[in-house]
Design a protein around this nucleic acid. Sequence first.
RNA 1: GGUCUCGUGGCCGAGUGGCUAGGCAGCGGUCUGCAAAACCGUGUACAGCGGUUCGAAUCCGCUCGAGACCUCCA
Length: 494
Amino acid sequence: MNKYRNPADVVVYNSLSRKKEKFVSIHPMHIGMYVCGPTVYGDPHLGHARAYITFDLVFRYFRHLGYQVRYVRNITDVGHLENDADEGEDKIAQKARLEQIEPMEVVQHYTVGFHKNMDQLNVLRPSIEPHASGHLIEQIEMVKKILSAGYAYESDGSVYFDVEKYNQNHPYGILSGRKIEELISNTRALTGQGQKRNSFDFAIWKKAEPSHIMRWPSPWGDGFPGWHMECSAMGCKYLGEQFDIHGGGMDLLFPHHESEIAQSTIANNKSPVRYWMHNNMITLNGQKMGKSLGNAMSLNDVFAGNHPLLAQAYSPMTIRFFMLQAHYRSTLDFSNEALQAAEKGLKKLLVASLTLQKLKPSQGAVDQGVDTIAKACYDAMNDDFSSPVVIASLFEAVKLVNAANDGHLHLNAGELEQLQQLFNAFLFDILGMQAEDAGSDQQLVDGLMQTIIGLRQEARARKDFATSDVIRDSLSKLNIVLKDGKEGTSWEVK
RNA sequence: GGUCUCGUGGCCGAGUGGCUAGGCAGCGGUCUGCAAAACCGUGUACAGCGGUUCGAAUCCGCUCGAGACCUCCA
C-alpha cells in the first residue's frame, strides 16, 4: 500500500490562481501552514467545525505523507470593529460589558470551550496557537514598516493602508478578483470613513475611543491593531516572510486575506503565501450559517440535540464524518436526514473495522482488488483532498470485509494486512475518525454482557424463546442490540 | 447593482467528453425460532432550451433558479 504514498503527488486548488496546482513546498519535506483561527467571543458553531476539520484533514494528510508540518492557527482576542449600532465598539469589549467581566475572562472562557469542542471533533491541536493579544509588539513593528515604506498614513490616531498607492504597482484584488474601480463605486459608507483618503483603505492600527476597554499604547496613541494585522504579523513570525499554505473560510477571502497580501507584500517585499486554500460554508435551508445571521448552531447544541431544528443529538464523530462526506470547497447543507445518513454510514465503517480484526486469512485466496482500493484512496486525497471519494472507496473495502466475514469471499493474508493498513491510515489517521463511547468501564460491561449472552444462549438451546426474548427486549430498552450470528452472539450499543 | 460559484435519481453527495461513484432511505430475496446486522438483486439522475461533436450530465451560448462576497464572519 505504501507504494502509493508519494509526497510529490499532491495537487491543491489555489484560490490565487483559481486552479488546481501541483503542490511543491518551499523547503523540501517541510510545510508551513497558517489558518485563520476563531474570534473567541462566542461558542463555536458548525461553521467553525467545517473550517478546522478541513484543515485538520490537510494537516493530517501531509503528515501521513511524511512532511514535517508547522501548523499555526491563531486565537483572535483583540476584537475588531463592529459596524452597526454599536458605533465601532469592539466585539470582545462589548460582550464583556454585557456580562460584567474582564475582556480577557471572556477570551479565556471561549478559548477553553473552543478547545473542548475541537478535541471532541478529534481536530488535532496546531503546532503553535498564538494569541493576537500576545503579539502587539510584532504588529506595531509591522505597522511601522509599512508607514516607513510610504504605504500607510496616520490620521487622527489611526493608521490606514493606502490601497490606491499599493494598487499602482501591485495588484490589489489579485486574490478576490476585485478591481479597485469597482471598490470605489461599491463600498458602503461606514463610520469613521472621513479620516480615510479612500473608502477602501483599511485600518492597520485603530485609535481606541475612551470607552474602549481593549487598548494598547503605540507610537500613534492608545489603540488596537487592525483586523488583518495579526495574521500577517504572526504568520511571518512563526512561518517566515513567505510560507506554503494559508487557509481559512471563503468568507475571509475579501477583505481579510486580500489585505493580508497587501500588507505583507509591502512589509516584507514579497508575496506572503504560495497556496491559498478556502473552505466553503455550511448552509441551513440553503442559506449561509453565520453568527451574525443568527442561524448558527453551536456545536454544544448539536452534540446535545439542543436546538429546535435538531431531530436528535449528533455525536462529534457523526458531525466530522458528515462534513468529510462533502468536498471542502462545496457548500454543505445541513439537514437531519443527511446527518442521520452520515451517522449510519459511519457506524457501518467502524463496525467493519472491528470485523476486519477478527478475520482469518484463507489459503489460496485470489486477488480481490484491495490494492485498487488503496490506490483510489491515495488518488483521491492527492486530488485536492477529496475526502468524499476516500470514503466511497472505504465503503468498497467494507463490502469486502463483510463478504469475507459471511464466507462469500476469501481474502489472503496479504490482503487482510493491506485492509488493516487501509483502515488505520485512511479512516483513523487521515479522516480522523475514532470509535466513540470507549468508556473506562468497558471491561466490566463486556464481562456482564458475556454472562447475559451466555444465559440467553442456554434458554435458546432449550427452545425457551420466551426467556431469550425477554432478555433481548430488556437490553433493547437500554439501547443494547444483540446480534445472533453463526459464530455466536455479539452486541453493541445502538 | 458589481464580481463569482452552483443547479446530479426520495435525501445527501462524487464525477471523466463514450465505460456501475458511494452512503442513507425504498423494494424483492438469502440468513434467523422471530429479529437485528450482514449478504445478493433492484432505480430510463444529471434545471430548461439551443449549439459544437460520430457521441455530452461532462465543452459553448442563452433562459430559469439558488447561493457567496462587496460590512464583522469559518
